[in-house]
């Protein structure tokens, strides 16, 4: 019996898999998805999140992973240790919320309670989409529609701010250092708006939408004001020839005066 066990172990082709290139030999579909994601772009691969594992490469059926202590399959319970090891600020924002506490409760919770991957599909690591999130709020917050509306309003506001920032960036590329057009207020408002957007994207994990709304609407308001000022500057600069006309008329009149005076002097 002992001999048989030893023989089967000897025949088993167990290897330590600790490089993404090796994972990809089997996990082709996942590899394609990750490669197309923000993690792929940032060169964050399989081993960065899942760690290394011993794998029995000769095993044809079942799970060949040995699930050693270095291997991590994502469970919402280790959200803090895993996603949070890089996304510290988001985790800190989320920590005081009921959603964070709920990740420790057990597997029978609805989707929205299942940690980071509930909203950010795990291999795609996609930016959370508003529709599915809001929908997934409903099972728990069916009695509190205000929470859902607040969240929806907040996300719409973030989208609007992001769109305005794009327009402001395009305007800055056109007008920066152009004579007669003061792009500096827009440049400052754009920087402040970008900071508000980045902060909002982190802070929204803490779900305090009402409190965050003031910061964001202030950023959006000053962005709008600066943008309007820039366009009015542009309009005024476009009409600059109007200022020139009286001056040219004065010069022309003076020229005529010089001619007549010259005739008077010589006559």
């Amino acid at each position: 019996m002992a001999f048989l066990l030893l023989a089967s172990l000897a025949l088993a082709q167990v290897e330590r898999i600790d490089r993404d290139e090796r994972c990809v030999e089997c996990h082709v579909d996942e590899a394609d998805v990750v490669k197309a994601s923000v993690h792929g772009a940032a060169k964050v691969g399989c081993v960065s999140c899942h760690g290394a594992d011993d794998v029995n490469l000769s095993q044809k059926s079942g799970n060949p992973h040995r699930k050693t202590s270095t291997f991590r399959m994502y469970r919402r319970q280790n959200l803090a240790e895993d996603c949070g090891s890089c996304h510290i600020a988001e985790l800190d924002a989320m920590r005081p919320t009921g959603h964070f506490k709920a990740t420790k409760w057990g597997n029978d919770q609805p989707r929205a309670m299942r940690g980071c991957v509930a909203c950010h599909a795990h291999h795609e690591t996609a930016r959370a989409e508003r529709g599915p999130i809001i929908k997934s709020c409903q099972p728990c917050h069916v009695e509190e529609p205000r929470i859902i509306t607040d969240a929806a309003e907040w996300s719409e506001g973030m989208d609007a701010l992001s769109k305005r920032l794009g327009e402001a960036a395009a305007a800055l590329a056109r007008f920066e250092r152009r004579p007669g057009i003061n792009a500096r207020p827009l440049k400052e408002a754009h920087a402040a708006g970008n900071a508000a957007l980045a902060e909002g994207r982190i802070a929204q994990h803490g779900l305090g939408f009402k409190a965050m709304e003031a910061d964001r609407s202030r950023a959006a308001g000053s962005l709008d004001a600066a943008y309007n000022r820039l366009t009015s500057d542009e309009r005024a600069f476009g009409r600059r020839w109007v200022w020139l006309m009286p001056f040219l008329a004065l010069v022309l009149t003076s020229m005529i005066l010089v001619r007549t005076q010259s005739r008077r002097l010589t006559s």
Binding site: R177, R178, P179, G180, R240, W241, W243, L244, F247, L248, V251, L252, S254, M255, V258, R259, Q261, S262, L265, T266
Partner: peptide, 29 residues
Amino acid sequence: PTTLECVGLSGLATLAVLALLAVFAPAGL
């Protein structure tokens, strides 16, 4: 031309040319 014409017209024309250039081809940075 009289001296007045040379001086007056040249000076005024210079101002006009300068103003036209400055307004229609403003210097950037």
